[in-house]
Design a protein around this nucleic acid. Structure first.
Lengths: 209, 209
DNA sequence: TTGACAATAGCACGATCGTTCGTTTATTTT
DNA sequence: AAAATAAACGAACGATCGTGCTATTGTCAA
């Protein structure tokens, strides 16, 4: 591992932290150089332009999410077990990701949704891949007989994404300690509504209590 | 209406448009002065500081949301009817608000959630009030007998907020035209799950199709 | 160990940032 | 209409932005 890629990795790590609190637009080259102990020009040479740095940071964020949330559940049995562990890992990531701020992917999604260009393409791809992962996870649960056969897996992924955003709003913006409870209960309702008839314990509608 | 408040209103209107696309941090005084046809110093004098301008913009965004989404449903009968019309109005607002970009409140919520200060307080208050409105709307539906008595109205509001965020991601970031369908179906599932036993048409679990 | 090359620093640039100040032009009140 | 007040302007400030250069330092293979 040569020196160049090592410092580049260090830069991206620090950039991720900075971005998690101040957003993509708050990620400035001068500030990042100061935090990494490099000179502005020395740091700049690693990326060639601000936009390329931003793209690299977004990709690093995806890689970090994959190693922390996706990969740990891949060896679990397909279907509901894997989906449940993924959910728990995702809620944990959203509440306290390995950065000082919140999830950079969520933040960038709403920051870039009205600015076409390579950055939006990058974050849109990330969200598409994440939704595909959830959708396939739900489809496996259908195949395994955990979920009912007529489940709309795309809608399932849509709902799960919604819970994740609502969690960030409740846990991070409003700082409500009971936020995680709501997340788990909303997720439980969603899973219960997707179960196959045989698995469903309650013979009536999904009650909250 | 004196001259001062008139131009101030014009400034805030343009600021809302600018913020909807470029975010709070993209809202710069020079750019805003250029778009409004004012000089930087002339515009600046209306607010005294950048932060006060930002607070004013956030308040303006709330006022705009109230007149466009909240107020139109206040004269509707309490309970489910009002809640349904509010939902439809909110989805319409999220898909195409009266700005070139997306909903500024959603964007600011994720932009400010890790930066304590007056700005975060302002947007947090907005989200708290919105959630309280939904919660009370659900509570009215319980009182009216539309929703079952043991419904957790706070959780109901939590879930609805999630749908709104997922909509922005799907409709704006990913640009999927069928996004609104998912929103309506997710909302329908949520409402069906909250109905009183007598109102529930389907005797079985909530199926998607 | 030296030579080739990668990595970083230093310096400067034009542009824009938020902000201040004194002046000038509009508006409102007397 | 004149006086008083409000509103907007123009110029400048120090700071920081992203981005070029050239020079210097460090690393790694021959």
């Amino acid at each position: 591992m040569s020196k160049g890629v090592r410092t580049r990795a260090a830069i991206l790590g620090e950039a991720l932290s900075l971005m998690s609190t101040d957003g993509l637009s708050g990620l400035t080259i001068g500030l990042l150089a100061e935090r990494t102990g490099l000179s502005k020009s020395g740091l700049f040479a690693h990326f060639g332009s601000k936009e390329q740095l931003q793209v690299a940071v977004l990709q690093e964020a995806q890689a970090c999410f994959t190693t922390h949330v996706i990969r740990p559940v891949l060896h679990l049995p397909r279907g509901l077990p894997r989906l449940e562990f993924f959910a728990e890992g995702w809620w944990a990531w959203n509440r306290s990701p390995p950065f000082p701020g919140g999830c950079p992917i969520q933040a960038a999604s709403l920051e870039l949704d009205d600015r076409p260009g390579p950055l939006r393409d990058e974050i849109a791809g990330a969200q598409r891949r994440l939704r595909a992962f959830i959708r396939q996870g739900a489809a496996m649960a259908v195949t395994a007989g955990h979920f009912r056969p007529d489940l709309d897996c795309t809608l399932f992924a849509f709902q799960m994404v919604g819970i994740a955003f609502a969690q960030t709003m409740t846990c991070r913006l409003l700082g409500e300690p009971e936020g995680l409870d709501f997340v788990r209960r909303a997720w439980r309702l969603q899973v219960d509504g997707a179960l196959g008839a045989s698995q469903n314990q309650t013979g009536e509608m999904n009650h909250v209590e």
